[in-house]
Every structure is written in C-alpha cells, then in structure tokens.
Design a protein around this nucleic acid. Structure first.
Lengths: 237, 237
DNA sequence: CCGCCATTTCGCTGCGGCCCGAAGCATCCG
DNA sequence: CGGATGCTTCGGGCCGCAGCGAAATGGCGG
C-alpha cells in the first residue's frame, strides 16, 4: 500500500522551488551560467552551510547538476525542461502581482537570456520574423529550417550543425514578459552564443547582484542591430 | 526597504503547489471540471475544514477561481497559464522518477484532457496532422487556420467563431507524456468540447476517484475514429 | 420558522523545515 | 608541510503551517 499522504511528484518538485532562498538561486541560474556554491549562498542570502543543504536537495531532485572543478563546485540548471518550468511558474506569479510593473526597468524586457537561449522582446521578434517569413517550418515537436532559412541563419554566424545536434533543433519557449514564444532548442542556444561571441549581444554587466534579473539582461550592440537588419531584416529598437 | 528574506513571487507560487493535499486538488482540477469544496476535500485526503483553508489560499494566490452556487462552492483552475505551469511541473517530476512507468496504464497516454483541451497521444497526433498538412499556419503567438483547415475543422463540428473569440485561437501546450506539443487555446477547447458532444470522445467514467488521472482520461469511440479518419485523415489507434 | 447540509472560522497541537555555528574534508598555494 | 579557502556534515533552536474538532455562518427544504 502506498501512503496516501505521500507527496506526489508534483508536490515534491514544487516544494523544491517553494523556499525563498532556493527560488533566488534558481532565478539566478536562469542566466544560464554555472555558479559556485559560494556565489549561490550569497545570492540566496544564507550561509554556506545552509546553501549547501539547499543545493544538495536541488541536485537530488534533478533540478540542478553539479560539476566539481578543483575546490569549487559549479551548479547549473539540469535541463531545458527545468528552465521552462521555472519560467512558467515565474510568469504565473508575474501576472497576478503587477503592482510595480517592471521595477527591473524596461531593460530586461528588451533582451535577456532564458536558460541558454535568447528571450525578451528581441527573442520574440526573432521568432516572429523567422516563422513569419517561412524560414522556419513546423516540424514534429518544433521547427525545422528551410533552405533560405539556413542560408540566412548561417550568415549571422550560427553553426547549424551544432544546433541540429541538440535534442530539439528548435522549439517554442513561452516568454513570460511578452506572452509570446521565443526560440529554444539547439538553434536558440546557438543564436545566443554566436551573437554574443560576434559582439552583437553583450551581457549587461552588473556584477553587484543587487538584482537577480541583472544576470540575465542582455544589450544589443550597434553592430548587432546592423547585423540583424542586414541578415534577417530585423529592425530592433 | 524590502525585506530580503521575503518570498519572491516564484517561491510564493511554488509554495501553493508544494503541499501534497493541495497538489492532489490541483491535479484533479486539471480534468477541467469545476469541483465542490467537499469533493476536493475527499480528493485531497483531508477534512472539510483543512480543505477550506487550502482552497482559500489557492484562490487568494489566483490559481483557482470560485463560483458560488447555492450552498455549494465550485472551484476550478483560474486560467490556461495555471494549467500550463502545473503541466510543466508535473512533466519535470515524471521524467526524473520513472521507476514505475505508467502505473496508470497506457490508457491515460492515449487521450486525456489538459485543463480544457485535448492532450495525450491523440492530441499530439492531431497537432502533427493539422500543422503537417499546412491546415494550421504559424502566426503571432500561435497558429492560424488556412482556408482548407477551416473547412476540415468545421466538418468535425467545431465552431470556429467561438474558437477565434478566445485569447489565443490556437497555441502549443507541451504534452508531458508524449514530449511533443498538442493544441491549446480556443481551438483546443472547441475540439475537446465539440468532439465530446458529438460522441467522438467520452470521459472514461471512473467516478470512484481511486486515481487522480482517472478524471482526465478520455476514450475515442468507434464513431470518433471513423469521423477523424474521414474529416482529417487521422488514423488513431 | 426550524432543522439539515455544505462550508468556513477559530483555537490548539505537533511535525517538519529552515537556519546557524562549529567541526570535518578536500584542494590549492607558498 | 602548514595555512588559507571552499564546501559539506553534524547538532540544536526556532518558527511556520498542516492537521483536527468544535462552533459559527449561510442557503435550502419542509
């Protein structure tokens, strides 16, 4: 007989996100970077001892994965699904408590990272442009790229082979600030990384972690704006 | 100064789902029906007094909405976003603990309700057929229907005007058992309701709530299988 | 108008968890 | 090899909250 009071998988997973310190850690990790236990302790606002316990629980629950390197232990989100669930929950919360609409400023709405891919208004604009022009075509479980689409994307510096080697080449991820999908999957990841190495996007510094969203914020450089206009016909603000 | 230990919106929302009794109630409400406080108390495995407190918190957190009718109070999920978040979280949990793969039997994988629209293998098949044939075309924030698509869908008894009056005509919702999207939005809702009134789909009874998923399970009738074959060219198992 | 029923409010008890300080390992550096 | 740093484990204190029974509220039927 299974205990009828046993916490189902849903409750167990939700409980992992239900603690303020853990939630802050997860939010910080939505920036896509791997962070050390110490950094996460500071972000969570707890001592190293407490943070260690939290991180162990999150890793045990398969929300995080650890990578030991020397005397540091780097934690990062375990998968795209985890990021999507956090994004979905965060979006829920945002919609019901908009008393201070965007205290983070409009900056975070413009462009930011969602786990490892591009989100925010720019991410949504790219999604609409690519699908609207037929450069991405519906495929099982997501999108595929047309011939012309591959040409255009390659012109922005994206390695399409690497994008195709991901579990999904391209699929939708709901953007919680724009309420429209942006691109996740291998293509989403490559867009973010290629455009950052090319200098089209820059992390909006802000090492002082006064704000959790700060780590996710991106800014489009002038070269990026020009590049996106020329190769994809996108005119970003 | 805002309290740095204040539970952010993410943690607050997650906490609402983190209690076993509340999670069971939410899971039951994923069937799309509105249930009374008493029924939810039984499903949650707690007394009416305890359940009342839980339901008040869920409603206060905007996860549920109440509808008072006589001396009964009917609770249902507040929105599509809430259902999507629960589905995302549930999917996370399912992937990391598949020791007993599908104790609910394969039945629930075949066809079930997700909030108010069709999910499961059938839902995914319909999604693939409609998009693969070009009967649904990518549009801002989801899908639009082509001329031929409208003709085919209308032939199955769907009221397209009512579907179009929803916030989204059609958009993707990730299916946690199939790992592929099925159709949500107005069209998803109309598909489920039209096909059920037409007798193509039937709720798989099971009033004895021994199983939470039971309330969501659907079965495709012989007429339904024939109808889907003739109008959409779908051959469901 | 009175009693029944579904639901909520109140007061209380008990468990689970979050948190920290101190101690124990592991790793890097001089 | 010894000290410093990063992280984890251990032990104990404390608060929050889920749980119940009992009593109050509000609708319904005779």
């Amino acid at each position: 007989m299974s205990d009828p009071t046993a916490p189902g998988p849903l409750a167990a997973t939700a409980a992992l996100m239900a603690d303020p310190a853990r939630a802050r850690m997860l939010a910080a990790l939505m920036g896509g970077q791997a962070l050390t236990a110490g950094e996460l302790a500071r972000i969570g606002g707890v001592t190293a001892a407490t943070a260690s316990g939290h991180l162990a629980r999150l890793a045990d629950g398969a929300l995080l994965v650890v990578h030991a390197q020397g005397r540091h232990r780097y934690y990062r989100l375990a998968s795209e699904e985890v990021a999507a669930a956090i994004e979905a929950l965060g979006g829920l919360a945002a919609r019901l408590a908009p008393p201070r609409p965007w205290k983070h400023g409009e900056a975070a709405r413009g462009a930011r990272l969602c786990w490892n891919h591009l989100a925010g208004r720019l991410g949504v604009t790219v999604h609409q442009r690519l699908t609207g022009q037929g450069w991405l075509t519906p495929a099982a479980g997501g999108w595929d790229a047309s011939i012309e689409g591959r040409r255009r994307l390659a012109a922005t510096g994206i390695d399409l082979d690497r994008a195709a080697s991901a579990r999904h080449f391209a699929c939708d991820c709901m953007d919680w600030s724009e309420r429209r999908p942006h691109l996740a999957g291998g293509l989403g990841r490559e867009m973010a990384s290629a455009w950052m190495t090319r200098g089209w996007l820059r992390r909006a510094a802000a090492e002082g972690d006064g704000d959790i969203l700060a780590r996710r914020r991106l800014s489009l450089t002038p070269e990026g704006a020009r590049g996106l206009h020329e190769s994809l016909g996108i005119d970003a603000a």
